[in-house]
Structure formats: structure tokens, C-alpha cells
């Protein structure tokens, strides 16, 4: 029974069906309960939040990531799944707190000063939330001072920086220098992404990781946690 509902949550997550009204990738599950309804049902039946996350949500989103990488899924397909995962995490959050299962980590994401691109950043935020992180979205066109301030006051462990323009990517270097100056070196790991930047640039400015997309952000943070 338990495994059946876990399986259903995973299937619906891969189909990108947040709730009963949602259409999936194909039409096979239309009209049946979606991730929200199934997650609630699972909790009622006594399935632990931890099991729901580790056996349904995490592997489900991994499968979505693979399908996206292989070109089978498009951006809206991935976003639909990520939003379903985020909705499940919202339901699980109070239960996790009760069970004292900590979130996987505190993350903040920002598009740097003078850059107003937010689509890529928003995808990263949704995906990281779906992966079980506590994510603060600091917004777009965020000044270096503000970023440092937020990292300090919120106890951020992982900072994602986005820049789409070659004229704004240099702000990333500024942020890393300012974090060092504020004594946050080593306390916060910096990940960068966006059309303007590359692995080479990450190495050059001393960022901890370069991420080509939201799924790479998940795996990069996972790898940094292991270190």
C-alpha cells in the first residue's frame, strides 16, 4: 500500500501533475489525483515525510532532470514537475519541522546588479525548493552590498549568482571579494550560472561551482555538501 502511493506520487511528479485538475505530459493520468492530493493521502496513511521525499520526490525530479537533459522534456514540462515538487515540499514542511528533519541547506539566489534577467534564476529557485532546500529568492538587479547583508543575516550556506550579460558578470567577482572582506569566506559557497559565464570564469573568480542549468545547481550543491 505504502509503496503503491509512493509510486503514484513519483509518477505524477514525472508527469508534472501538481493537482487533480492538471493535465500531464500525456493524457493517461488526467482526472486522477495529482501530487498534492497524493502527498496528503500518503501522510494520512502514515507514510513518513522522509520516505515521500527520498523515494518519490527526489528520484522523480532526478528522472525529470534526465528527461530534460536528453531533450525529451522541454522547459514548461520541467517547470510543471518542479512546481509539483515544490507544492509537495510545502505540504511536508510542517511535518518535517515536527519530526526535526532539517532542510537540506539554506540557499539564496540572486541576479546581480544591473542585470534584470529572471527566468533562469526562477527555474533554479523552483528546482532547488523541489529538491528540499530552503531557498530565498533575493530577486534581480541586487546590489553587492545587499547580497552580502542577506548572506550574513540569513545564515546562507549556498549562494547562487546569475548574470546573463558580459557587462554584468564582473559583479560576481565583486560579490565574492566582498564576501571575503566580510569574513564569510568558507562559510558560504558561491555557485554561478547564466548565459554570460562558464566554468573557466568560475575558476578565474574563485567561485565554488559553475552550473549550466538548474539541475546542475542541485548536483553541484550536493557535491559541495560532501566536501
Amino acid at each position: 500500500m505504502e509503496t503503491e502511493i509512493i509510486e503514484k506520487i513519483r509518477e505524477n511528479l514525472i508527469q508534472g501533475r501538481k493537482s487533480e485538475e492538471d493535465e500531464g505530459i500525456d493524457e493517461t493520468l488526467n482526472g486522477t489525483p495529482g501530487v498534492i492530493e497524493l502527498t496528503e493521502e500518503a501522510l494520512e496513511k502514515g507514510v513518513s515525510p522522509k520516505e515521500i521525499i527520498s523515494l518519490a520526490i527526489t528520484p522523480g525530479m532526478e528522472a525529470v532532470g534526465e528527461k530534460y537533459d536528453s531533450g525529451e522534456y522541454f522547459i514548461p514540462d520541467m517547470l510543471a514537475s518542479a512546481q509539483a515538487a515544490g507544492a509537495a515540499m510545502e505540504i511536508l514542511k510542517p511535518h518535517l519541522e515536527k519530526a526535526r528533519i532539517a532542510s537540506k541547506g539554506r540557499v539564496a539566489v540572486a541576479t546581480v546588479k544591473d542585470d534584470i534577467h529572471d527566468i533562469g534564476k526562477n527555474i533554479v529557485v523552483i528546482l532547488l525548493k523541489g529538491a528540499g532546500y530552503d531557498v530565498d529568492d533575493l530577486g534581480i538587479d541586487v546590489s553587492t552590498e545587499k547580497i552580502v547583508e542577506e548572506v550574513k543575516t540569513r545564515g546562507i550556506e549556498y549562494l547562487g549568482l546569475s548574470a546573463l550579460l558580459t557587462s554584468t558578470m564582473t559583479r560576481m567577482k565583486e560579490v565574492i571579494e566582498a564576501l571575503d572582506k566580510a569574513g564569510l569566506k568558507g562559510k558560504v559557497r558561491v555557485l554561478i550560472g547564466g548565459a554570460a559565464v562558464s566554468q573557466e570564469y568560475a575558476d578565474e573568480i574563485g567561485a565554488d561551482a559553475y552550473c549550466a542549468d538548474g539541475f546542475q545547481a542541485i548536483s553541484a550543491i550536493g557535491a559541495l555538501k560532501q566536501q
Binding site: 492538471d22 493535465e23 505530459i25 522541454f74 514548461p76 514540462d77 510543471a80
Partner: peptide, 9 residues
């Protein structure tokens, strides 16, 4: 067309 489902299908 929410999430561009029909189009992508």
C-alpha cells in the same frame, strides 16, 4: 494551454 501541454504533445 497550461504548461504548453497540448502544443508539446
Amino acid at each position: 494551454d497550461k504548461w504548453c501541454r497540448r502544443y508539446a504533445r
